[in-house]
């Protein structure tokens, strides 16, 4: 049973509503670093112009491929485990998870070794500053993670559009808008680091206009003693909210909260 956390804080917030807007320092630092990355990084998701599985080979200039201008002869394929760029003189390997410049584009092979994916970035693409709801401590919950009845896994998309094998980590019960809603938690690996996150991909009434329509991700933070913190102020968009180059995860069945979860990242439309 998940219980509301920070009862004392909630009382304090009600007495001093100004504090509601101020995110705690660690969360503020995370947001600042993320906003800076979105605004300045050459591989910011706003700069993504294509993301496709490499499969049996990708023609970079083809309409069926990424369709990159000036790269009609270029092709990316996997040879003996390496991602190789050819068609532009001597074939050259493309390092996994690292950008390689090609004209105005940056190519980043990623995904898993079994299903490599190429993401292409164009730094000249316009970017928008992310926007967050004011911090709301009432939307933090602490409680237990109920393990699944049976161990299982399934393939799903990560926030950055990569298909991975994720394991079912169980469920959490969230008391929100007068209803206790059970949300599925999946352990999502990061192929680049070997670490994993306990993620909840959820939808709520804000998806209709204020937040990204497909839903948002929020990671569980372990608190010790078998307890986890689910802080909707840390909700964030899948990368398809920043660029249509990314595949968008399908909403997870049943992970729908009644009412408006006005916390975390909003959707900044065109």
């Amino acid at each position: 049973m998940v219980s509301r956390a920070l009862v004392l804080c909630l009382a304090a917030v009600a007495a001093a509503p100004v504090a509601r807007a101020q995110a705690p320092a660690p969360l503020a630092a995370e947001r600042a670093a993320f906003a800076d990355w979105l605004a300045t990084a050459p591989t910011s998701p706003f700069a993504a112009v294509a993301q496709q599985p490499i499969g049996s080979g990708l023609a970079l200039g083809a309409a069926a491929g990424p369709g990159l201008e000036g790269l009609e002869k270029a092709r990316v394929s996997v040879e003996a485990g390496r991602v190789v760029l050819d068609g532009l003189g001597t074939p050259r390997p493309l390092p996994r998870f690292r950008p390689t410049r090609l004209g105005r584009y940056l190519l980043v092979p990623g995904g898993t070794a079994a299903t490599p994916v190429l993401t292409v970035f164009d730094s000249s693409r316009a970017r928008k500053a992310p926007r967050w709801y004011p911090h709301d401590p009432a939307l933090e919950f602490v409680g237990a993670l109920t393990p699944p009845v049976q161990a299982s896994s399934r393939r799903l998309l990560t926030p950055d559009g990569i298909e991975v094998e994720a394991t079912d980590a169980g469920t959490v019960l969230v008391p929100f808008a007068g209803v206790a809603t059970r949300l599925r938690v999946m352990r999502i690996p990061d192929p680049a680091t070997g670490e994993s996150e306990l993620e909840v991909f959820f939808r709520d009434s804000t998806n209709a206009g204020e937040t990204y329509p497909a839903g948002r991700f929020v990671a569980l933070v372990p608190e010790g003693g078998g307890k986890y913190r689910l802080d909707f102020n840390r909700s964030r968009n899948p990368f398809c909210a920043y660029s249509s180059a990314y595949a968008c995860p399908l909403p997870w069945q049943g992970n729908v909260l009644p009412g408006h979860v006005r916390a975390g990242e909003q959707y900044v439309k065109d």
Binding site: P26, A29, E30, A33, F34, W37, L38, A41, T43, F97, V108, G110, T119, T158, P159, D160, D190, A192, T193
Partner: peptide, 14 residues
């Protein structure tokens, strides 16, 4: 903070 920038953005650890 320790910051390690991956494909999903910066990972910060106080």
């Amino acid at each position: 903070a320790y910051s390690n920038v991956g494909n999903r953005g910066p990972r910060l650890i106080p």
